[in-house]
Amino acid sequence: MELQPSLDREAGMSRSRGKRGGWITFPFIAATLTGLMLAGWGWLTNLIVYLIEEFNVKSIEATQITNIVTGGINLLPIISAILADSFLGSFAVVAISSCFSLLGVVLLTLTASISSLRPPPCETGSTLCQAPSRVQFSVLYAAIALASIGLRAMRFTLATMGANQFDTPQYQGVFFNWFFFILYGACVVSAIGIVYVENSISWGLGFGLFSAASFVGLAISLLGTRFNRHDRPQGSPYTGFARALVSAIRGIFHYHPKLRIITTE
């Protein structure tokens, strides 16, 4: 009799694995991660150089912009986790973030390819360099914002979505090992290979490669939809907290008549 709950649990897990989830989803997740990290890590690594060489931004200001972008990126996983767990689900957040990443990198490619979207070229460090116009800065900042949302929101939510495809801690551990191996491997390739293309051949070609990698990652992610196990959102955790807080306040005033009299006066 003691073994029956365990057997029922295992039967339910095997039925769940038979329908969706499992290792069949791993190639899609791995390809999505590779494409989006190739695109995301490359532009972030070389952002300071791009601002200085192509937008005539002073080195101090370029460093400040990059620091602000990096700080904002580190806050995005908190927001994406709340959206995934409470409202949209992990797959929806990954898909939306991938679209943002693609749009952002495409805009960056346009700024590198269309001369009217950046100031006239000049020698780095010269006092005669023309500053970017408001329109040029607006397009650049919009591209960076969209690409930043896609980079961080996707990265950690994709890890959670991938782990949810497995029922046992052992398989989840193996998945995380491969996940981080692929993640950092893609970062190394992007930071060395594609950044070299940007600095030595063309910024437009480098960003174009980022756009292609982001598009392929998004396409493969959508192709794997029918194999993924989609968890239902659990609702906002702050709703229950707010209700508990209101109930506690009501209880205080209910059991302390003096406080109730003070508030009514």
Rank of each mutant, 00 (worst) to 15 (best):
222 L>P: 05
166 F>W: 01
225 T>V: 13
126 S>N: 13
257 P>I: 09
50 Y>N: 03
190 S>Q: 04
46 N>L: 02
13 M>Q: 14
85 D>W: 12
19 K>N: 13
42 G>Q: 00
13 M>E: 15
45 T>Y: 03
170 Q>R: 08
50 Y>M: 02
61 E>R: 13
11 A>Y: 10
139 V>R: 02
15 R>H: 10
263 T>P: 01
29 I>A: 01
89 G>D: 05
244 A>Q: 13
120 P>D: 09
225 T>W: 15
83 L>A: 10
72 G>F: 07
168 T>R: 05
234 Q>E: 12
60 I>Q: 14
20 R>W: 12
222 L>G: 06
221 S>H: 12
233 P>D: 04
79 I>P: 01
26 F>M: 10
58 K>R: 14
105 V>D: 00
98 S>P: 07
117 L>A: 03
228 N>D: 10
221 S>W: 13
219 A>F: 12
44 L>M: 09
202 S>Q: 02
232 R>T: 09
7 L>P: 06
6 S>M: 14
109 T>M: 04
115 S>H: 09
127 T>Y: 10
25 T>N: 09
101 S>N: 09
263 T>N: 10
120 P>C: 08
203 W>D: 02
240 G>I: 06
188 V>S: 15
22 G>K: 04
80 S>N: 05
119 P>V: 02
241 F>Y: 09
181 F>Y: 09
5 P>G: 06
93 V>L: 10
132 P>A: 05
158 L>P: 02
139 V>C: 03
34 T>N: 05
20 R>Q: 14
213 A>K: 07
229 R>N: 09
189 V>G: 08
73 I>R: 08
61 E>N: 12
170 Q>L: 08
175 F>W: 03
154 M>S: 14
61 E>Q: 15
20 R>H: 15
118 R>P: 00
3 L>H: 12
123 E>V: 15
51 L>C: 01
